[in-house]
């Protein structure tokens, strides 16, 4: 019998974590209890930014991370957070198809094997004030948590302000920041309606999580166990995308039920935002080089 430790970053009630629990159960059943995966959710074993290293160095055998978390290592990992490049579930899936081989090859260099990937709901813009044009964002203090987000805020004319998740509730209620770019899911989880009034469903991008395994641990399994693992992973991927999309609608309903003003971005604003997206796509290609251009071309062909 083999036991794997699986650190994951998100709380037990998050749909990614629930999906992983189900995946672990299926692996257990399919291998007749020969491969047991202990899920350590919510950063209880390793925190989000330590999980890759933990698996890489053998302290854990399998883990989950958000791909864009690795963006500092390689521009490739920032692809799914380039704004307005892939804004629907269908497009996000195509973007994953186009970039999957490259991501797998890049992680294989670190001795890691990708099992599956699931997208988060699209990123929207939460604000205290009503927004009509991009001019309304001028000088607005918007929370930034990554280089991509900071750059996007700058291009939108706002002022990026770093606020850590732990300080966010207070920062929003005291006006340290007055807008926040995040998904309907996170907005629901953090109960944004307690501080913010408007939600603009701008669908900037759909970040993705991946579940990955140490190549060494994977190779140590016997063939039936490997097959069972890959089969459960494929099932988890399909289930995950479906749940993610279903949940998006549910999350938005919840925002409405909690009296947030939920609306699509006004046309004038969306048009300006798309321009920001084009500029950032060009900047991404500049960083990612010819390999990046090739992925982008492949994606556009799929579209």
């Amino acid at each position: 019998q083999t036991t794997w430790d699986m650190p994951t970053p998100y709380p037990a009630s998050n749909f990614h974590t629930e999906n992983i629990q189900q995946f672990a159960k299926e692996v257990d059943a399919a291998t007749g209890g020969k491969l047991k995966i202990t899920v350590h959710a919510n950063g209880s074993l390793f925190k989000a930014n330590e999980i890759k290293r933990a698996v890489q160095s053998g302290q854990a055998q399998i883990g989950e991370l958000i791909i864009s978390g690795l963006a500092n290592e390689d521009a490739l990992y920032a692809l799914d957070t380039v704004p307005f490049l892939a804004t629907s579930y269908a497009d996000s899936k195509k973007l994953w198809q186009a970039s999957k081989d490259a991501v797998e090859a890049r992680l294989a260099k670190n001795g890691l094997k990708v099992l599956y990937s699931v997208a988060w709901p699209p990123q929207g813009l939460y604000s205290m004030a009503e927004l009509k044009t991009i001019g309304d964002l001028k000088g607005m203090k918007i929370r930034s948590y990554s280089p991509t987000v900071a750059r996007m805020i700058e291009l939108m004319g706002g002022q990026p302000v770093t606020v850590q998740a732990a300080d966010l509730t207070q920062a929003l209620s005291t006006g340290v920041v007055s807008a926040n770019l995040t998904s309907s899911a996170t907005g629901y989880d953090t109960k944004s309606w307690e501080q913010l009034s408007h939600y603009y469903d701008i669908q900037a991008w759909l970040p993705k999580n991946i579940v990955f395994v140490s190549k060494k641990a994977f190779d140590a399994l016997d063939q039936p166990a490997r097959d069972a693992l890959l089969k459960a992973a494929a099932a988890a991927e399909e289930r995950g995308w479906k749940v993610s999309e279903e949940k998006t609608a549910w999350y938005i309903d919840q925002l409405k039920a909690n009296k947030m003003k939920v609306q699509p971005a006004p046309e004038a604003l969306q048009a300006e935002l798309l321009k920001v997206g084009e500029k950032m796509t060009a900047e991404w290609v500049e960083k990612a080089g010819p390999d990046g251009q090739a992925i982008l071309d492949a994606y556009r062909k799929l579209k």
């Binding site: 709380p11 009630s13 998740a165 732990a166 207070q170 209620s173 109960k191 307690e194």
Partner: peptide, 21 residues
């Protein structure tokens, strides 16, 4: 409030941090 442990609990248990505070 403010309280670090309430933030940790709020995230883990899916409870409003403002309400906990």
């Amino acid at each position: 409030p403010p309280s670090i442990i309430m933030i940790v609990y709020g995230v883990a248990a899916d409870v409003s941090i403002s309400k906990l505070f």
